[in-house]
Computed example of a mutant assay.
Amino acid sequence: MSKRLIIKTVLICIGLFLIMDSALFAYIFTKYPLNMEKQVSVVVATADIKKGTVIEERFLRKKDVWESTVNSSIERDIGNIEGKKALTDIYKDDYIRSCDLLEKKDWYKDDERIIVLPTNMEERLANLIRKGSYVDIRLQKDSGEATEDILYKIKVEDVLDETGTALDSKSAVNSKTAYFKLVLGKKERQKIYSAAKNGRLIYELYCDNIQKSGEEFK
């Protein structure tokens, strides 16, 4: 066998080996891919948690998951969850999401109730009062033009039409009267009821929602 033929045969064998070797590695990496992604710890439920439950540490545990499966709403720290209420049913092994939790400062107090107060539509539009606005409530007495301070910086939970539908809803009806939905404690409600017997309630709008809050007027 000539030297040239030997060299050609060797080169062909090497080429075939490299092709087979590449194909083998491609198959292995396709069948068993190397995952270089980082894992992160998130909080999951150890048992079913009913809506309204105050969440305790025993309901929670940490679990390592791939970073790509986690979004910003998923809680990673058990300390951020303890003592909050579940806004929805959370099932065993579910991720705990911040949007499913209610902080203690946002719970209703035992004596708080929802009340609805009417105002004419012109006054409401002139003051640009809408859902989420903060208002001072004043009394204009029947006996004169003087006004009296009743409540200070009260949040308007919603503005409703005569059917109880939110005015910003497409199904709201045209009406001359708007109704402010408020959440007030017993003492605040009593002030409103007493004032309403002596004149007309007036609502003054804050320029924005971050103005400094003060104590309720005495």
Rank of each mutant, 00 (worst) to 15 (best):
K3L: 08
L11I: 15
I12M: 12
I12P: 00
G15S: 15
L16G: 13
F17E: 01
L18W: 10
I19R: 12
I19H: 08
I19A: 15
D21Y: 14
S22T: 11
A23H: 01
Y27W: 14
K31G: 00
M36G: 00
V40W: 07
S41D: 12
V42D: 05
T46K: 14
T46V: 13
D48P: 07
K50R: 12
E56D: 14
R58V: 09
R58Q: 12
F59S: 14
V65C: 07
T69A: 13
N71F: 10
N71M: 02
S72N: 12
S73Q: 11
D77L: 07
I78F: 07
K84I: 02
L87N: 08
T88Q: 13
T88V: 15
R97Q: 09
R97K: 13
R97A: 09
R97V: 06
S98T: 09
S98W: 05
D100T: 09
L102K: 12
K105C: 01
Y108K: 13
Y108L: 14
D110H: 08
D111T: 09
I114Y: 14
I115Q: 01
T119N: 11
E123N: 15
R124D: 05
R124Q: 13
R124V: 12
L125E: 10
Y134A: 03
Y134I: 11
V135C: 09
L139W: 01
Q140N: 08
D142T: 07
G144D: 05
G144A: 05
G144N: 10
E145P: 04
D149C: 01
D149A: 12
Y152M: 09
Y152S: 12
Y152I: 02
K153S: 12
K155H: 02
K155V: 06
E157Q: 14
D158W: 11
D158T: 06
V159R: 09
L160Q: 03
D161I: 05
D161F: 10
E162M: 05
E162L: 11
T165F: 05
L167V: 15
K170V: 05
K170H: 06
S171E: 15
S171A: 12
V173S: 09
N174G: 09
S175Y: 04
A178S: 08
K181C: 05
L182C: 07
L182R: 03
L184E: 02
K186E: 11
Q190A: 10
K191D: 00
Y193A: 03
R200S: 05
L201P: 01
Y203F: 15
Y203V: 06
E204P: 00
K212T: 13
G214K: 09
F217A: 06
K218V: 03
